[in-house]
Design a protein around this nucleic acid. Structure first.
Lengths: 117, 117
DNA sequence: TTGACATATGTCGATATGGATATATATGAT
DNA sequence: ATCATATATATCCATATCGACATATGTCAA
């Protein structure tokens, strides 16, 4: 065996800086491939390749218009990443620290007064 | 040239399913390497290697305890991922859809009544 | 010191991947 | 039909990376 099974998932798609760049551009609106070539400075075949990867994980959709192919973002494909990483948000979010403080306080009260009322 | 400069960043670290698995385990608390070996089913050297990558991007911290090395998570390293992906949350979040609806409504009112009052 | 245990590092082979270049396909214009 | 434009695909090379395995390092115990 060698490398782990090629995971063609959103995590991998987004691990490439160029692909993130492309997504960031598309966040501004639908674009034909040539625009992306110009804006990224990559060669056209490379852009098409990155777009293919993004397409395969559902991060972008395509639409034909004459001889152009208009790509647009489909952020929904990134939801799994968001969901996964959100579990670790506690580590840096002030909100959670405050929540923790409140919970501790509640617990302290409960210890203070064990009655139902 | 070949592959783009090896980006040893959080995005890459987390692109590996095994490394996500390790982080998920560590989310439950500090663990020595051997625990991770047992829980992941990976060989010890592979675990050490993945831990190294995670260490290099700051996603985990180590602490020596006798002959063991206790690893624990440092979720803060994942914040850039969270921040980046959050920009696309609009695509799936109901909250944003509601916000958009409100904004559209406000805009409609403004068109209705162009006066300052 | 010797030996067992815990972990890290080095090497190897297989494969995946990105960029460069050439070429194929599709569409529109003449 | 011919040509230009827009995009996708194929091939090649260089490198990165994973798992397997061997081995080094470090720590504790006797």
């Amino acid at each position: 065996m060698a490398r782990a099974a090629t995971t063609a998932d959103a995590f991998n798609a987004v691990a490439e800086p160029r692909r993130r760049q492309i997504l960031d551009i598309l966040a501004g609106g639908e674009r034909p491939v040539n625009d992306l070539v110009g804006l990224t400075g990559l060669a056209q075949p490379q852009v098409s390749r990155h777009l293919r990867v993004l397409r395969e994980v559902g991060a972008v959709d395509v639409r034909d218009q004459g001889r152009q192919r208009l790509y647009r973002i489909n952020g929904q494909a990134l939801k799994p990443i968001h969901d996964w990483v959100a579990a670790y948000e506690r580590s840096w979010s002030e909100r959670f620290e405050q929540l923790d403080a409140v919970l501790e306080e509640l617990q302290a009260e409960e210890v203070d007064d064990g009655s139902d009322e």
